[in-house]
């Protein structure tokens, strides 16, 4: 049995590591232009865990894959904005420089461990491939390091398992392999794209706790993409909520859950039943559907589903305003909303 209580919020963070400004990504498809990201801005400090929350199609995955320019192109294209990683704009560097950052200073843990590993390559080779790209080690040293990494992420008899293929691992173990790979070159930032969504509940808990403890131990910053508000509550320092390619709300984790100020965030929190709730009130579902991102939207993207919406919401996109220290909301009626006038 293992218990963890490693969790600090607020100002444990160090220097600014990543700063994303007005990032815009579009997909040029046969049906038209899909506005996947409509100018999102956020930052991550050293050692921070930022969670980006949203539903499918909200742009949360495109948003982080754009950081390493990993979106499929064509049809995807980053059309505007800046991605400053320790002061360097990742959108301006050439492919060779970008490659030293990919898997080096910034690494990724993908969603589905079943499909994210090469099925015909031994896992040892897949890990050492990353190590040898970024570090000047002999193949033997790299192999030793890979075995150490597998041990660190909790895979029994790691040296033996290097020569196994992905299909010889269970889902949870494969995700551990992915984590070992992501950690292999001591990254400063790990992008975790829904790393536990494809896993069972008890395995999900193992992986969450593993990443949490590794993060505390190594001081790595993490961007955690999720649709699960429970997981986010467990490990994030700060949270950004995305809807239709916009960040609609951004706040420290306690603040966001205690005083949500965007109608969509409130809607999400209210639509979930709680595991520990004895009294059952009717779930407050958000009516309607997420918008189609094909073509330009006018006004606030959430307006058609919002009970606070007025004329201005339908006409002009709301700017992000600060409603409390480090708590930003893009809503014309945030005062009304956060005053608790919940319809």
């Amino acid at each position: 049995m293992e218990t963890t209580s490693l969790h600090t919020t607020g100002s444990k963070q160090g220097k600014r590591l990543l700063e994303v400004r007005n990032l815009e990504t579009k997909f040029y498809t046969a049906d038209g232009v899909v506005n996947a990201l409509n100018g999102i801005s956020y930052s991550v400090d050293e050692g921070e865990c930022l969670a980006i929350v949203g539903e499918s199609g909200s742009g949360k995955t495109v948003g982080v894959l754009s950081i390493l320019r990993l979106i499929q192109s064509p049809p995807g294209r980053i059309v505007g904005g800046e991605i400053l990683f320790k002061g360097t704009d990742l959108l301006k560097i050439d492919d060779k420089e970008l490659r030293t950052i990919r898997g080096g200073a910034i690494s990724v843990i993908f969603q589905d461990p079943m499909t994210s590993l090469n099925p015909v390559m031994r896992v040892g080779a897949q890990i050492t491939e990353n190590i040898r790209e970024h570090e000047n080690l002999t193949s033997r040293q790299a192999r030793q390091k890979a075995a150490d990494l597998l041990g660190m992420v909790g895979i029994p008899t790691p040296a033996k398992r290097l020569d196994d293929y992905p299909h010889q691992f269970s889902g949870g173990m494969r995700q551990r392999v992915m984590i070992a790979m992501a950690l292999s070159c001591s990254p400063q930032l790990i992008i975790a794209d829904e790393p536990t969504t494809a896993l069972d509940v008890t395995i999900q808990a193992q992986i969450v706790e593993l990443i949490k403890s590794l993060q505390a131990e190594l001081g790595t910053a993490v961007i955690w993409i999720s649709h699960d508000l429970g997981v986010v509550a467990r490990l994030a320092d700060n949270v950004a909520v995305m809807y239709a390619g916009h960040i609609v709300e951004k706040a420290p984790v306690d603040e966001l859950y205690a005083r949500p100020a965007h109608p969509y965030t409130i809607g999400l929190l209210n639509s979930l039943p709680r595991l520990d709730a004895r009294i059952k009130t009717k779930l407050k579902a958000i009516g309607g559907l997420p918008p189609n991102l094909l073509g330009m939207l006018q006004g606030c993207a959430f307006a058609p589903r919002c009970m606070f919406a007025t004329q201005i919401c339908r006409e002009q996109a709301p700017p992000a305003i600060e409603v409390a220290p480090r708590h930003q909301v893009a809503c014309w009626h945030s005062e009304l909303v956060s005053a608790g006038e919940r319809p």
């Binding site: 997981v231 709680r274 595991l275």
Partner: peptide
């Protein structure tokens, strides 16, 4: 173990909660 593995969308409560992590896979 199953119940303790489910995170609750309530950060202060989550920080206090004890978790029973099950080892390995089914």
């Amino acid at each position: 173990a199953l119940l303790s593995a489910i995170p609750i969308p309530d950060p202060p409560l989550e920080r206090r909660r004890q978790r029973t992590l099950l080892a390995g896979d089914p």
